[in-house]
Design a binder for these strands. Structure first.
Lengths: 189, 189
DNA sequence: GTCTATAAGACGATAGAC
DNA sequence: GTCTATCGTCTTATAGAC
């Protein structure tokens, strides 16, 4: 059993979904990148949608694990939030999950859409938890609303990618993050 | 000369670019929506890219005019910013300009990318001007940085669209805006 | 100006040999 | 398990009639 070929197919699909989206990615392009023939793909998967589902699920799981490790690390809530917002990113490539929301064909398929929706919903919730910890610990004033602020921070990142891609430079992303941190700083005790 | 057919083609392309992106939009789909034949399109435009350029340019101009009217209206800077952030939007359709940044094929064409880049850069600058007015007028503390904050606000909107589309509900968009307004309120004098 | 006909190639999937 | 061959459809564009 060639688990290896299946994995190369999934990895190739993950890369292409990130670069060109679901609509812009053909099975042929995936096969070429993976160095496999038509038969391999249709042996391991029922088709393009099925392979994409494995790819999106894997990317979502990886993103979630990475973020959770960072947000669950030791340190103050403020340090963890700042660290997450300022961590290294391949800004111009965009968010491998958030970017998929723009693909109508992908979003029309419940199996493909679900991991995207769940990951972003989880992210908002996880950030809200950390913000709430910070408020409870007296790091921020209690007038800071954890839920709406968490959504604003996630939106800032997602929108930062959009502005950076438009500009062809990471600068707007960094500026968006800097602005958010500046606004958040007003709530420090 | 059938200016009318050309306009219907542009309008149809504008709608489809918004709904399905550049890669996901075929000339055939545009022609069907416009009720025209192949010949009409290739008479008025050199091809798909040329028609799309007219469409993107028109959408960009319209967005810019709408926003500028709102941000240049009479009233305090704070009211204008709040009004802009809270204005009626077809949230689940996403931003007709910002959404295009996710389309690699469109962004690879300088003629198609330029109006997208210019519109979002202009928007950041225009919001920064209004924020600076507000600071100068004593509406916000001088510790509020107009440039980074403007980028954060535009990113919040763009990211709000992403989160709303993922969730299939306008709620995350509204929450992101509410969070941003809450953060901004801390700078009120 | 607009139409239909046509073209070469890509798309997504299937069949069947090995 | 993987390959090549093949299928019917769609894509983008051109040709030429009207």
């Amino acid at each position: 059993m060639s688990t290896d070929t299946a994995r190369r197919l999934v990895d190739s699909m993950r890369e292409l979904l990130w670069e060109r989206g679901y609509t812009g990615t053909s099975p042929k392009a995936v096969l070429q990148r993976a160095g496999a023939g038509q038969g391999s793909m249709y042996h391991h998967f029922s088709g393009k949608a099925d392979l994409a589902q494995s790819a999106v699920t894997a990317t979502a799981a990886e993103l979630r694990a990475t973020v959770d490790a960072q947000l669950s690390a030791p340190g103050s809530a403020r340090d963890r939030i700042t660290g997450y917002l300022c961590r290294e990113r391949e800004v111009l490539r965009g968010c491998p999950i958030g970017g998929l929301t723009q693909d109508a064909e992908l979003m029309a398929d419940p199996a493909l859409r679900a991991p995207v929706a769940e990951t972003l919903a989880w992210l908002r919730g996880r950030l809200a938890e950390v913000l709430a910890e910070g408020v409870a610990a007296g790091e921020w004033r209690s007038s800071l609303d954890p839920d709406t602020t968490a959504t604003t921070l996630v939106a800032t990142l997602q929108g930062g990618y959009v502005l950076a891609r438009a500009a062809g430079s990471p600068e707007p992303f960094d500026q968006a993050v800097a602005g958010a941190l500046g606004l958040l700083a007003a709530f420090q005790v």
